[in-house]
Amino acid sequence: MNKSTMAALLMLSLGWVSASAQQAPQHHHDHSHHVTMEAASVNQSDSIYHLDGLWQTHRGETIELSQLQGSPVVISMIYGNCATACPVLVNDARRIYSALPPEYQQHVKLVMVSFDNDRDTPAALADYVERYQLNESAWTFLHGNDTDIRTLATVLGIRYRLRDDGNFDHSNLITVLDKHGRIVERIEGLNRPVEPTVAVLKKMIDAGHAHAH
């Protein structure tokens, strides 16, 4: 994927989460550089961290999504019993992470949210992490209630449906959020090239450091 494709994706994602795009959409991606304030409260109107609801991590903590703010997040949705697409999605997130220079890795969070409220308990998710050796502290697997799962999926543009046989039909989508929780990139499909995503993450992390000093 080249620069213009990426810019188009950027506009696509920003376009439909920003309320009144008075300006041409091309200007939107600049906003992340204007904002220097680090606030505990959710201060961006188009942040997904406006979603309320409590989630359980695979480490047994209870968190709100807004606690993820402060660093860029690579987020996707999966379920543990899924044998085909989901391991690929997890691996795609890992490929993005691994392609980052080590000094950048510590600034990125990888969040996998389960569709399966019944079976993917925090303990089951911990087993999953163990099984796939996702031991880096960057990883967080989340278990939530059905309402919050539906809300998050819808805001990310992930469609899913529980089938009668207990499996889920779902879109394969990885989303990159900036440190404020705004969607900056969406990667549709499996096994996509990671370079554009890595470039976006590096740029955001560099910008964050520039402001910090």
Partner: peptide
């Protein structure tokens, strides 16, 4: 209302 919850 937060911008993320509506289309303007």
């Amino acid at each position: 209302i937060a911008a993320i919850f509506h289309d303007g």
